[in-house]
Design a protein around this nucleic acid. Structure first.
Lengths: 117, 117
DNA sequence: ATACACGGTTACCGCAACGAAACCGGGGGC
DNA sequence: GCCCCCGGTTTCGTTGCGGTAACCGTGTAT
């Protein structure tokens, strides 16, 4: 259920969950509970915060339907969709370079251990 | 002395100063004090942290010269240089879309005020 | 003796992000 | 009466990023 390896490293778009939301909405609107289920462990509080921030910035729209049980749909705006290309570049870069970063980390860790020992 | 408008909004590469360092190093190695002067208000502590993290991830190298006064040069590795393209995309996206984001924020703020009043 | 240059380190602190757990209201089903 | 659904809210606590201010060692210049 990984959206992109970018979650593991120093390159990030927006805050922790924004990119994930963009990915989940890129093929059409979805509702709160669907998003919640499809994202790793997000608490409703944090998901609400993320969605409200994105709405405020014009990345998505929030639509309430007068139904029982309640239904609320989140849908990317054009601005939100425009993030996809950027996200693609980021993911591509990460897929190419994450191994190098991890190798560098391992090498530096070893050097540190050698110095400490 | 702005590197890219990305500092003002929810799209960011790495932590607060990483992109800036990449920009300052893209045309060759520089030393600690030079970086410090050219970046907005960075404290030495935070700059050290940023540089150490980037070094650990293989983005740049740190070279000490045995001179008086001390000289230390930071230089991008190939991995560090590969960030430039990503940075360019991010800056381009931001330049194109920041006005839209700001417009959305203003619109939402007005709506909030109207509701509160 | 004092000050300055370089490249930092150390101790402390505030804020925002993130998370865990409980709770809410309006309805429906058993 | 009880629990479930949905879409949240509320409270509390933790973590981590970033910032402030002071200090450090080594050497050189005045």
């Amino acid at each position: 259920m990984e959206i992109c390896p970018s979650n593991a490293l120093p390159v990030r778009i927006g805050d922790k969950w924004t990119a994930w939301v963009v990915r989940l909405l890129e093929h059409g609107p979805r509702r709160f509970t669907e998003l919640r289920k499809d994202m790793g462990r997000v608490t409703p509080k944090v998901l609400t915060e993320t969605l409200r921030a994105m709405e405020r910035d014009g990345m998505l729209t929030r639509t309430e339907f007068d139904e029982i049980p309640p239904r609320v749909e989140y849908e990317l705006t054009e601005l939100g969709h425009s993030l996809r290309a950027l996200l693609d570049h980021t993911c591509a870069w990460t897929r190419e370079n994450l191994p190098l970063i991890e190798a560098a980390r391992r090498a530096n860790d070893e050097a540190d251990h050698a110095r400490t020992a």
